[in-house]
Amino acid sequence: MTITARDIEKTFDRYPALNGVTLEIAEGELLALLGPSGSGKTTLLRLIAGLEFPEKGQILFDDQDMTLAGAADRRVGFVFQQYALFRHMTVARNVAFGLDVRKRAQRPSKEEILKRVDELLKLVELDGLGKRFPNQLSGGQRQRVALARALAVNPRVLLLDEPFGALDATVRKSLRKELRRIHDATGVTTIFVTHDQEEALELADRVAILNLGRIEQVGTPTEVYDAPSGPFVCGFVGAANRFEGDVQAERFTGGGLTLAAPGVANGSATAFVRPHDLVPAADGDGFDVVAHRVTAQGPVVHIEGLTLAGLPFEAHFARENAQGLAPGAKLRLAPSKAYVFPA
């Protein structure tokens, strides 16, 4: 099902949470809403779920206007950040809840419900744990139960609010893969909220980046990483070194750096260079730096230090290019690629 949010505005206590947001999510897509806290991403998710209602704008499910429909009438699956499992019910009863509460005419028979619960528990790899209570499960298992419960009603769209936020790094990684697998198996349109850009880039088909209640950019992970629409996206998605300076005649100068800035108007500007785009340079090119910290992280060596202008920088070298590099070493670096945005 296609979901459209059109010109959405929402305020909390006069503080704007969403400020004219328009977004379209295609049938079967896995979309990430990415942004820092307070960017309005969770609010947008709750508006789509019908847990909040906008002051202005429309929410459409296909062509159907659902702006003011209650959550119970939308048939969405919502997975909460803290799972929100019913603590007094067993895992099986939790998963069955959405079917149990249906009106008699639409409710499947007891056997069908049991069968469906078994299927779902198998899908999330929790078969055999149906009789447990939520407080007898680990965080990752609870998250799977929440997922199975949301999927039980055959939702038209699956919404997940910071689904991995409360889990430790290892569980988080494996559940990410799990979510992708379940999405591919069920084909249900899925939107998840995250503040973790790595998670968004790894998992999603497309990423919508929010900041201060507005959408900054929507695109595939490659697009938002390689062609950021502005300084916010560039700084938020992936790490980047920042250089403040000026553009004159399509050339950026600042922080000891000179760069081509095609199409950028004259005036003050900010240049961004990704750590892996900083490469060793020959004399007469690039700028001088002093390395203060050199740490090997697997195949990549992270170098942190200061430029001669006193600005902090970070560069990532492949390990073979960093032989014999130690703190205190003087280097000459040049950006192989940079982004310049008018300030």
Binding site: A72, F80, F86
Partner: peptide, 16 residues
């Protein structure tokens, strides 16, 4: 209100 919101989003009425 998380559990209540979860119940409502699963289609339960207010009374239920």
């Amino acid at each position: 209100v998380d559990e209540e919101e979860a119940a409502v989003s699963l289609g339960a009425s207010g009374l239920r």
